[in-house]
Design a protein around this nucleic acid. Structure first.
Lengths: 232, 232
DNA sequence: GTTTGACCAAAATTGTCATTCTGGTCAAAG
DNA sequence: CTTTGACCAGAATGACAATTTTGGTCAAAC
């Protein structure tokens, strides 16, 4: 019940998943690393899968909050570019979220297939497109380009950056700051419209962010498969 | 010996590799699909691995030529942007080359690991950086940005576009033309310098292209592992 | 000189069974 | 009321043999 206990369990889980991967991480390992008994884990979470799922939501929420915090602190926080790049930086800094793209199989095994085999990101992508349209209406993104194509380009740039280390070892890559600085530069030149209402952009983001996480969550819930307990 | 025969074999190999993958494609299958006997294949190629390797070089050469052809036909062919995008379009259109990134395991099995386990793209990346510097000197790319970071950004954008279909099914993606048009637009705004000597750019590319393929080839040769024939 | 396909050794696959491991439970301890 | 860890059934793993497949060869046909 203690919250600190729960966080310790989640942290241990994250660490072991990243290091050993789902298949080679046993619940006993997690218990030991967290300094609790195995039974204690089942006091908090009904199954190993549920534990991993809870960890993912936990990190997603943290990321969400962290992005919002940085945008508030950023004087330029309402611009489209800073929004995109703050999100990207946070994603780059949270290895577990990165692993959803880059090392899903190794880190998560078949949890995704097992929990929500029919999950589709279509609804989320649609929400992004709507958001881009709103930003275009606010004069924060050039209005002469198709929002769908913009969304697609943002998606593959993000995906490329999150997974490029499969091809370029991270120790041979330029520093993340330099990479993101150039990205900001190019995005500003390529997408941003002159002028535009950044204050409105900031509040549009807040609405979007809540909506987005709800979209993900409801999409997840609706495609989620109930844990079967088939004893016969 | 007949060249047409060899091409038929290569085409059959490509088709089967893409459809069934390396492990599930037998040499007999290839022979049958190509309409020759199994022995005929070993008349042209010393082993299955060598056949696949030859196919890859064959396609790489074709891609190389095709890119050069399109650049010649393009009135804007000397610009950095058209160079990058022509290359990308050709890569997108040649599924086998795409598969090197996107479906390596499925399509090629362990050929890469077996043939050149220590292959590194470092030398190629260095050549790209040099090329970007040359383009900067010619006034075709903004000179105020670090060539290394530019190269990295181009790499992850390319990688993202080539592999995004893992995340966004290709039938839900915008048309390739629209995607590449926006890419040209954004790259022009983000990277291109005003003015610049496009004629020199075109000839710089020719030098670069030869150099690049040689770099790949020599890197490949030097890390290549000899087919062992260990009978004891 | 070419081309073929039957042939072979090596490798991969399948099936089986014994053993170990691991997610999850619950009676007992605190 | 909380927490624990010994315990259990079912799943995963490994070892082994029988069977099939497959990359590669070469004597024979053309």
């Amino acid at each position: 019940m203690s919250d600190e206990r729960r966080v310790r369990i989640l942290n241990a889980t994250r660490e072991l998943l990243l290091h050993y991967g789902y298949d080679k991480t046993t619940v006993s390992d997690i218990a030991q690393a967290a300094g609790v008994s195995k039974g204690a884990i089942y006091l908090h979470y009904p199954s190993k899968d549920a534990l991993v799922e809870a960890l993912l939501w936990h990190d997603a929420d943290r990321a969400q909050q962290e992005i919002a915090r940085r945008l508030q602190a950023d004087p330029n926080g309402g611009s489209f570019t800073s929004l995109y790049v703050h999100g990207l930086r946070v994603a780059m800094e949270m290895p577990l979220l990165r692993a959803i793209y880059g090392n899903r199989q190794r880190v998560f095994g078949d949890v995704f297939k097992r929990l929500a085999p029919n999950f589709s990101n279509q609804a989320i992508r649609a929400a992004v497109i709507e958001f881009i349209r709103k930003y275009q209406a606010l004069g924060l993104i050039r209005a002469d380009i198709d929002a769908k194509v913009v969304a697609y380009m943002l998606a593959y740039m993000r995906y490329g950056l999150l997974t490029i280390e499969d091809v370029i070892p991270s120790d041979e890559a330029p520093p993340l700051d330099a990479v993101l600085d150039l990205l900001v530069d190019v995005l500003d030149r390529g997408f941003a419209a002159a002028g535009g209402d950044t204050a409105a952009g900031r509040s549009a983001y807040i609405a979007y962010a809540e909506n987005a996480i709800n979209t993900v969550r409801s999409q997840w819930e609706s495609t989620k498969v109930e844990e079967e307990e088939d004893h016969e």
